[in-house]
Design a binder for these strands. Structure first.
Length: 148
DNA sequence: CGGATTTGACCGGCGC
DNA sequence: GCGCCGGTCAAATCCG
């Protein structure tokens, strides 16, 4: 596996404190993960008063030559789209574990071809089976600290 | 042979 | 209401 250098968080919101994964043994990677709280408000001015759905989305960027980042989970690709303002397509993945509905998006930057933006959405409810080196570590810490 | 990719179609939300 | 835009489906295909 190639080495991936994790870059700055996408959003620089002061409240969200991106935690740092200290460079561990073997993995000399600094990680900053930005947490997105996506609020969807639907005010239909009706009885329900509107729905409010909170979705957490974790986004981080890596600098890598490959966009297929093996993070130890099993992903099944289910779509690929060209988005505007970006000449590279965006890929959509789902976790293939039964009952685990975690989604993942991978998008490459048009300006910096080496920068890959990866976003995770949802919680994994199963152990990681694969040993994926540095990203395994990152994801473990990630899940341990944020999603359990 | 079974599961993952590919790729165009489909669909829903939103703005005009 | 329509068309753009982003996200998902699904059938065919690929690959171990």
């Amino acid at each position: 596996m190639e080495k991936h250098e994790v870059l700055l968080p996408i959003s620089s919101s002061p409240d969200a404190s991106p935690f740092n994964v200290k460079p561990g043994n073997g993995s000399n990677i600094h990680v900053k993960i930005a947490e997105y709280l996506k609020t969807k408000k639907k005010e239909t001015s009706s009885q329900k008063g509107g729905k409010e759905i909170m979705k957490h989305k974790y986004v981080f960027q890596t600098r890598s030559q490959i966009d297929i980042l093996d993070d130890g989970f099993r992903w099944r690709k289910y779509g690929e789209k060209m988005v505007k303002d970006n000449k590279f397509p965006r890929s959509y993945y789902k976790c293939t574990y039964q009952g685990c509905k975690v989604k993942k998006q991978i998008q490459r930057h048009s300006k910096d071809e080496q920068v890959v933006e990866t976003s995770y959405e949802g919680m994994h409810i199963h152990p990681v089976e694969k040993s994926a080196e540095s990203f395994d570590q990152i994801l473990r810490n990630f899940i341990t600290n944020n999603q359990l």
